[in-house]
């Protein structure tokens, strides 16, 4: 169970300003059903540039609802320029803090506010323009960098807590680490090109595998009257066929895994698996 503060519980159970402002002149919608939380903030800004009214509708967990409620309480009656300076930390602070895994709820509040102000002012937010880093939750590099800088984040886990980026399949963790390094070091480091072959084409793999087979593996097997043939390479799966005395040898499976696979992993690519093809 999450350790929510009494204020979070209070705002969750008795949310303020639920609904939609009539004649709203600023609307901010963020999140989606798929992501598990979403917030629609509507505001009415009066002629003195003061937020006269603010309401919300939220789909999400207790801290998402509480953050939305807190946000509307904070901005009602506030000059627009001041509201524009509200950070997610301010929202979390208003609630007496949020569990670290739930900080993204306060970020969602801040984003909805920015979107509402942008819609009032008729401008487009730059955040959505960036390159999508996390495909699971649709988070851009600009959003990630901003969270790192503003909330002083130090780990990929913290980025996930604040932006949700990296909380799904986890494929983007390397990229998040890069962004983290970039922001933390203040500037992009001098690029030192990595000369190691990272990805091999199947043709490159086949060529290398053939070389290792010829140079090392075949001579060893031939000593025992056996032989090996490369049948196919499918991704990282190497399909081979054993010949000669290997065919009837009870230890051939061990040979395949403990010797052939080991050699190929050492000398070609450490992700290869060797399987025997059925002729």
């Amino acid at each position: 169970m999450w350790e929510y503060t009494d204020l979070v519980k209070e705002h969750f159970l008795n949310p303020r300003n639920v609904g939609e402002v009539e004649n709203a002149n600023g609307i901010g919608e963020v999140g989606s059903l798929a992501c598990g939380d979403a917030l629609k903030l509507t505001i009415r800004v009066d002629e003195n540039q003061i937020i006269a009214d603010a309401k919300f509708k939220t789909f999400g967990c207790a801290s998402a609802i509480a953050s939305s409620s807190a946000l509307t309480e904070m901005i009602k009656g506030m000059p627009l320029d001041d509201a524009a300076k509200i950070t997610n930390e301010d929202i979390a602070e208003f609630l007496g803090g949020l569990p670290k895994e739930k900080m993204h709820c306060s970020v969602m509040g801040r984003e909805a506010l920015e979107a509402a102000i942008a819609s009032y002012r008729g401008v487009k937010l730059p955040m959505a323009e960036g390159e999508v880093v996390c495909e699971c939750f649709g988070v851009t590099d600009l959003e990630v960098k901003r969270a790192i800088a503003e909330s002083n984040l130090h780990t990929v886990e913290e980025i996930t807590n604040f932006t949700k980026a990296g909380g799904g399949c986890g494929k983007c963790h390397d990229r998040l680490q890069e962004l983290l390094d970039e922001v933390r070091q203040g500037a992009v480091q001098l690029a030192i090109p990595d000369q190691r072959p990272k990805r091999m084409t199947t043709i490159q793999k086949i060529k290398l595998i053939e070389e290792v087979l010829e140079r090392e593996i075949r001579p060893a097997l031939r000593k025992d009257g056996g032989d090996i043939e490369l049948i196919d390479v499918d991704g990282d799966t190497v399909i081979v066929s054993l010949r000669g005395s290997c065919v009837s040898c009870k230890k051939s499976q061990t040979t395949l895994k403990e010797y052939v696979e080991k050699k190929l992993r050492e000398q070609v690519l450490d992700t290869l698996t060797v399987e025997e093809g059925r002729a």
Binding site: K9, F12, G60, C61, A62
Partner: peptide, 13 residues
Amino acid sequence: YVEGEAILLHLDR
């Protein structure tokens, strides 16, 4: 159209 944690915490009341 509703989220589980919110349901559980209301039930918990």
